[in-house]
Write a protein that binds this DNA or RNA. Structure first.
Length: 874
RNA sequence: GGGCGAGUAGCUCAACGGAAGAGCGCCUGCCUUACACGCAGGAGGUCACAGGUUCAACACCUGUCUCGCCCACCA
């Protein structure tokens, strides 16, 4: 056995163990395991680095995978990365510019080549970081969403949906991002509150000396107005419906239409209708057969249809229009107005709704099975409340705009022949089925990144081919991710799984919280409040970080993370480290006994009882994915039960030597063995390292059997005896501390006790003496009370700590009075309860009995305290 | 405008309807030969507010307030 450093030093062993595990093939699912357990990683963007959010997400997954692996499952954690269309394209562009190249001047294939080069050089960063975290992914199965196999899956899916009529192309109003120069889906639009202005503009009525005033936040879009609408039952405008209005500035004629969509309460009750630049107006326009005019182009500049404003930026145009309206007296008023505007979730630019020709997926038919899956319990959410969010979205689903005007991504697998016929295929080859033409041109656009992500649970396993992996590992067991991508990813994966595999891709969705800073703000690069996990791992250890993250994360609530909190994990690792050093120190040179807790010693019997509890608790926590409770339970057991009590008690037997020492050594090892196995899924490195320094008789911890409660014998009487022992110990320590007995000084103690307390104290005399630092211990049913002593009541017994020469009578009196007061208060409230007739009649008998018992105990204690106090008053 | 979540010790969070807990911080002692990343002891809480259900409520119900998310076609 090699030496162990004095303190936990993770740098010394983390990378070494990761290499050992990987070389040992332990990240691969065991071929012989009958039951599979699969998790597919939410593929991080290739552009990204590891964030604290990733740490939480992947620590949870790794904990589950390692736990199942130890249980003997064929555990597969399938890793990979997402090509992240827009994000990557932007990063590559910036990179090119930084290198003095001009991305705008590049042709498509040159750009894509550059993007791949960038990906090969930089795309592995986050994967390397996951390894530092200890993620036990099967790297031999790593996938990338642009891998050939996954491309094949994308084309196949597109083809199937196209043939089913669920994919269509058409000119509709879509969210156009001027910043990213592409259409984006509804889900990619975020809403940001803005303090804006509401402009009231007068539209003269043709042939009358009247005008209809409309309210708008976007005066520039009036250039594209094709109607004004009012509510059909709005009396203010009843006589005007059907008449013609004159659009200010451009003097175009507009019908005044009636539509129930209009809110009579808002503004003037009249709304300008711009089908070309507003989703509601687009709908309204269709209903009324109105034309639509696009006055803003893809760059955000006014088109030729904007007349004199053509070529201006939309915002510049807004200002000029307002000026012009003022000048002509058609601007009635301007009010401050707070509202939400849609912005691109990628670049934050205000989204410009525009009409353009795009590809869409018809979602309703796909949503049905996904809805049923949740409603019928085949897909379950943890926490449950997210199910409602999922269902609500699916019930109100809108078609999915899947085409993106980018270069980086899966190119839309549609080809057009020279005669305009369409065909879906991966590569152009065969002649056109309709005209025989061989001149094909592929659609210019690429697919939304999520169009490959939604296939992830099966495309990564080989689909559309029927591979062994697909057969064995699909469906996966659990998906671990954040609630922010329920719509983008989770729901769509369920839809795809149902549609293409005929089965849900997973049965449990664990949605953990977001990581925030200590002020509750979202972690983000721009705020600069997101610490670099790698730096934290470097300074505190991966295990410390992992443990802390889990400990801080109650199921499904956001985590407020601060660097200081990692100390909990680091200190805990150090504690274990030193417990192991203690064990080794006591094992000495000779051959060590096999770990075991079979002796008749109270400490061993009690530890078995505790292990029984903690093992079943850990199991339950993992089953229910309550990771914070899991971490807390193991922490409390290891620190408080094992280190504070068991090891302290073991010192007595170790000092005694002989058989008792051998038994203690076996027990110390057995306790550590259980703790290390329980903790391995959370803290893989330090547990593995510690285990390697101890003669536990096991192979690598990573494939050691998960500890079962049934390995340990329950022992209620040991628990009870231990309680007596610890209560006596604490009472004595308390007196010592409050009476300022120097820690180094052992005190004489007299215990006036009979029955259980006397029996336990006598049997555990050696333990008690050691734990409470006692010089001489006298136990009897009625020993004489020592002259100078402080006392305490423990159950039905009295403890006297001799304090010759150092007793401070005043101190002791006030100490006893405090105790007495506490007991009397409790006695009073308990008596009151028992005086209540309803309580006696209606409460459960055992509750009543325990209250009565409580009174008896309190009364006896109060008597004793009173007597002790009286003795001091003399 | 809907929906969801949270409001418990200075801070971050626990607590099957039956005497309010942990970690950090704080106070007092201790370098007690595993650990000062530690040991022992201690202080600190009208469990957001108001009603109600119950013998009994931090927990269940109703309402209110505050904070935070998500969804939504009031321009």
């Amino acid at each position: 056995m090699s030496e162990m450093a004095k303190a936990y030093d993770p740098k010394e062993f983390e990378s070494r163990w990761y290499e050992t595990w990987e070389k040992g093939g332990h990240f691969r699912p065991r071929p012989e395991a009958s039951k599979p357990y699969t998790i597919v990683i939410p593929p991080p963007n290739v552009t990204g680095g590891l964030t604290i959010g990733h740490v939480l997400n992947n620590t949870i997954q790794d904990t589950l995978i390692r736990w199942r692996r130890m249980q003997g499952f064929g555990a597969l954690w399938l890793p990979g990365t997402d090509h992240a269309g827009i994000a990557t394209q932007n990063v590559v562009k910036r990179d090119l510019e930084a290198r003095g190249l001009d991305p705008a001047g590049m042709d498509r294939s040159a750009f894509i080549a550059e993007a791949w080069r960038w990906k090969e050089a930089n795309g592995g960063k986050i994967i390397r970081q996951l390894r530092l975290l200890g993620a036990s992914c099967d790297w031999e199965r790593e996938r990338f969403t642009l891998d050939p196999g996954l491309t094949e899956a994308v084309v196949e899916v597109f083809r199937r949906l196209y043939e089913k009529g669920l994919i269509y192309r058409g000119a509709y109003l879509v969210n156009w991002c001027i910043g990213c120069q592409t259409a984006i889906s509804d889900e990619e639009v975020e809403y940001a509150d803005r303090d804006d202005r509401l402009y009231y503009v007068k539209y003269p009525v043709m042939g009358l000396d009247r005008a209809v005033t409309v309210a708008t936040t976007r005066p520039e879009t009036m250039l594209g107005d094709t109607a004004v609408a009012v509510h059909p039952e709005d009396e203010r405008y009843a006589d005007l419906v059907g008449r013609t209005l004159v659009l200010p500035i451009l003097h175009r004629e507009l019908p005044l239409v009636a539509d129930t969509m209009v809110d009579r309460e808002f503004g003037t009750g009249a709304v300008k209708v711009t089908p070309g630049h507003d989703p509601n107006d687009f709908e309204l326009g269709r209903r009324h057969g109105l034309p639509s005019i696009s006055v803003i182009d893809r760059m955000g500049r006014m088109t030729s249809d904007a007349g004199p404003f053509a070529g201006q930026d939309r915002l510049e145009c807004r200002g000029q229009i307002v000026e012009e309206l003022k000048r002509t007296g058609l601007l009635e008023k301007v009010e401050p107005y707070a509202h939400a505007v849609g912005v691109c979730y990628r670049c934050g630019t205000v989204v410009e709704p525009s009409i353009s020709t795009q590809w869409f997926v018809k979602m309703k038919p796909l949503a049905e099975p996904a809805l049923a899956a949740a409603r019928e319990g085949r897909v379950r959410f943890i926490p449950e409340r997210w199910e409602k969010v999922y269902i609500h979205w699916l019930e109100n689903i809108r078609d999915w705009c899947i085409s993106r005007q980018l270069w980086w991504g899966h190119r839309i697998p549609v080809w057009y022949c020279e005669n305009g016929h369409e065909a879906v295929r991966g590569e152009q080859s065969a002649p056109c089925g309709k005209c025989g033409s061989r001149q094909w041109r592929q659609d210019e656009d690429v697919l939304d990144t999520w169009f490959s992500s939604w296939l992830w649970p099966f495309s990564t396993l080989g689909w559309p081919e029927k591979t062994e992996d697909l057969e064995r590992f699909y469906p996966t067991q659990v998906l671990v991710t954040g609630p922010d991508i329920i719509f983008f990813w989770v729901a769509r994966m369920v839809m795809a799984g149902c549609e293409f595999m005929g089965e849900e891709p997973f049965h449990t969705v664990h949605l953990h919280g977001l990581v925030r800073d200590e002020g509750g703000r979202k972690m983000s690069k721009s705020l600069g409040n997101s610490p670099d996990p790698i730096d934290l791992i470097d300074r505190y250890g991966a295990d410390a970080l992992r443990f802390t993250m889990l400990m801080l994360t109650p199921t499904g609530t956001d985590v407020l993370f601060g660097e200081k909190k990692i100390e909990v994990g680091r200190n805990f690792a150090n504690k274990l480290w030193n417990a192991a050093r203690f064990a080794r120190m006591n094992l000495g040179e000779g051959s060590a006994p096999a770990p075991g807790l079979g002796s008749a010693d109270l400490a061993d019997r009690w530890l078995q009882d505790r292990l029984r509890h903690v093992c079943s608790e850990a199991e339950e926590c993992l089953e229910q994915m309550r990771f914070n409770d899991l971490a807390r339970a193991i922490y409390a057991f290891a620190w408080n039960d094992y280190c504070d009590w068991y090891l302290e008690m073991a010192k007595v037997r170790l000092a005694a030597g002989g058989t008792r020492a051998e038994e203690a050594k076996a027990g110390v090892l057995a306790g550590l063995d259980a703790i290390l196995r329980l903790l391995h899924p959370i803290m893989p490195f330090v547990t593995e390292e510690i285990a390697s320094h101890l003669p536990l008789g096991r192979g690598p911890l990573i494939v050691s059997p998960w500890p079962l409660a049934t390995e340990y014998r329950p022992d209620a009487s040991a628990a009870e005896e231990f309680a007596v022992l610890s209560e006596l110990t604490v009472a004595i320590r308390n007196i010592r501390s409050e009476m300022n007995v120097p820690p180094a000084r052992n005190a004489d103690v007299t215990l006036r006790a009979s029955g259980e307390v006397a029996r336990v104290a006598d049997a555990q005399r050696a333990h008690l003496i050691s734990l409470a630092r006692i010089a001489r211990l006298e136990i009897g049913p009625n020993p004489s009370k020592p002259r100078h002593s402080a006392s305490a009541v423990v159950r039905d017994s009295e403890v006297f700590v001799h304090l010759e020469g150092i007793i401070d009578l005043d101190l002791e009196r006030s100490r006893l009075r405090r105790e007495l007061e506490k007991s009397e208060k409790m006695l009073e409230s308990t008596r009151r309860k028992l005086a209540n007739q309803d309580f006696l009649e209606k409460a459960k008998p055992e509750v009543v009995e325990s209250e009565k018992e409580k009174v008896r105990g309190l009364e006896a204690g109060i008597d004793k305290l009173g007597a002790a106090l009286a003795a001091l008053e003399e």
